[in-house]
């Protein structure tokens, strides 16, 4: 079985800027994959190369085994892209835009599926409305709908929830999760790391055009972020020497201590008791992707 996406040694320069520096990546069919990185890391360039909007200087990309240049027709039929920019054609209504997009993909009578997408994205009431008259959130939904008109098995969403309210974000993710359960491969870029953490099974982190981390979300959290013990000591008490080196970030009197595992809590508390430190508050912080992201970016 071909991978949903195969990227081999892709390099792209824009003048002096190295946008992608030899990216290798494989995404298996059915995965929910996250592509993370700071602004300018190359996420959108990589997606654009996959979609045929950008031509790599070196390297190859394939969607479900079809090369995006040599076999572009097949590759594009298998790929749905939700672009990052909020773009729309002001001449048409929502339904017209979806019909036209279907036709571009060679589908003549697509009404049943268009109705289903409109229903799922809560756009039924807006089907006859001109694109210009829609709110930003509504336009974003139409972009998602446009990417789905040809039922692509591989769906790429480039920051789909940027500037979207909570309600729509949740509805959108419920729909995308369902598509993933139905077998669609999802590739997502986002700056909302908690979204990536809860949705993506695997994550690649990009920095300056290179992949600096690639693993399952669970492994990344394990490798780069452990539990954190947050302590607030009674005023006037100092932590014992044995713990002082491991404590960091006294914010508002709260000190954080990184743990390799939960069993270490016991010894920390014992050390504090022995030193006569009185605790005002204690909290156990779970690993989070934000911390992983920061550490990977610092290291990479």
């Amino acid at each position: 079985m071909h991978p949903a996406i195969r990227i081999e040694g892709v390099t792209k320069r824009f003048g002096d800027l190295l946008a992608l520096g030899g990216v290798d990546l494989e995404v298996a069919q059915g995965e929910f994959f996250g592509l993370l990185g700071p602004n300018g890391a190359g996420k959108t360039t990589l997606i654009s190369a996959l979609a045929g909007l950008v031509r790599p200087d070196v390297g190859r990309l394939a969607v479900m085994g079809h090369d995006v240049v040599a076999d572009y027709r097949a590759a594009r039929r298998l790929l749905g892209v939700v672009p990052q920019e909020l773009v729309f054609d002001p001449f048409f209504s929502v339904r017209e835009a979806l019909r036209i997009q279907s036709g571009y993909f060679g589908i003549r009578d697509n009404e049943a599926w268009i109705d289903e997408i409109l229903e799922n994205l809560d756009l039924v009431d807006k089907a006859g409305t001109n694109m210009r008259q829609l709110s930003g959130g509504m336009k974003r939904r139409v972009l998602v709908a446009q990417a789905l008109v040809h039922r692509p098995p591989v769906i790429v969403l480039d920051e789909p929830t940027a500037g979207v309210d909570v309600e729509l974000r949740q509805a959108l993710w419920a729909f995308i999760r369902r598509l993933n359960r139905d077998g669609h491969t999802i590739v997502l870029t986002t700056h909302y790391l908690e979204e990536a953490e809860s949705l993506c099974g695997r994550i690649a982190m990009l920095k300056q055009g290179r992949i600096v981390a690639l693993d399952t979300t669970a492994n990344l959290l394990r490798r780069f972020s452990g539990h954190t013990l947050r302590l607030r000591l009674a005023p006037g008490t100092e932590p014992p020497e044995s713990l002082r080196a491991r404590l960091s970030g006294a914010v508002g009197g709260e000190q954080a201590l990184a743990l390799d595992n939960c069993e270490q809590i016991e010894s920390v508390l014992a050390d504090l008791r022995e030193a006569g430190c009185r605790l005002v508050d204690i909290e156990i912080g779970k690993p989070d992707l934000e911390e992983v992201f920061v550490r990977v970016m610092e290291r990479g």
Binding site: A51, G52, L53, Y72, R73, A74, R76, R77, L79, V81, P83, E85, V87, F88, D89, P90, A97, I100, Q101, Y104, F105, G106, Q146, H150
Partner: peptide, 16 residues
């Protein structure tokens, strides 16, 4: 289409 960015709707599909 280029200025507004909606040219992508024509560039993404399999149109030769």
């Amino acid at each position: 289409s280029k200025v507004t960015g909606n040219i992508v709707f024509v560039l993404l599909p399999p149109i030769s």
